[in-house]
Amino acid sequence: MYTSMHTSGRHSGRLLWAAFRALLVLTVITGVLYPLAVTGVAQTVFHDRANGSMAEADGREVGSALIGQQWAGEDGKPDPRWFQGRPSAGGYDPLATGSSQLGASDKRLVAAVRAARAQVADFNGVPVSEVPADAVTGSASSIDPHISPRYARLQAERVARTNGLPETAVARLVEEHTEGRAAGFLGEPHVNVLKLNLAVHGLARE
């Protein structure tokens, strides 16, 4: 800690005491009043969004529309009745977000991508050349709620077959759930996997 030669110990003490009081009063403003004010507005005006954009089915909460999920059966393997999301470094656990962190030339990543390509191709009965990149790479958050429209279309036939639904009906759901770029140019076109699966769930129950 810097102290000038001209500053006596008592002077430094006074300065630190002033600094401490400044910190406290500014903490009240930026650490208490600010978040409370924003929370007040958010909870009043955007109640659902402020609380996580929760999605419901069968009269209960089944997740957040913004948080991706694992669509696995009891054996932990991908369940063919559901549209599948991207590979996840953390198993879609929102309490352990983050990615694989492997470099673009890393041997382990090459092996993981190769295995994922084979798995996705086999699972959906398509040639490996048709498997899109997002289906075989882990997202940044590990809870990416979206897949590319191409990956969704590729899964439609399988989902229709395993749910006993007409393929055209499921393909239509995919088109309905394809969201374009915001304002036409922001971000990428995507499909929300949970919302799409909820629609499939609804259709299968009818």
């Binding site: 090459v110 190769r114 390509r117 990149a133 790479t137 997202s139 940044a140 990416d144 979206h146 995507h190």
Partner: peptide, 12 residues
């Protein structure tokens, strides 16, 4: 191999 640099990136 994957066809795009999407490892560690979000779809949106």
């Amino acid at each position: 191999l994957a066809g795009a640099a999407m490892e560690g990136k979000e779809t949106r």
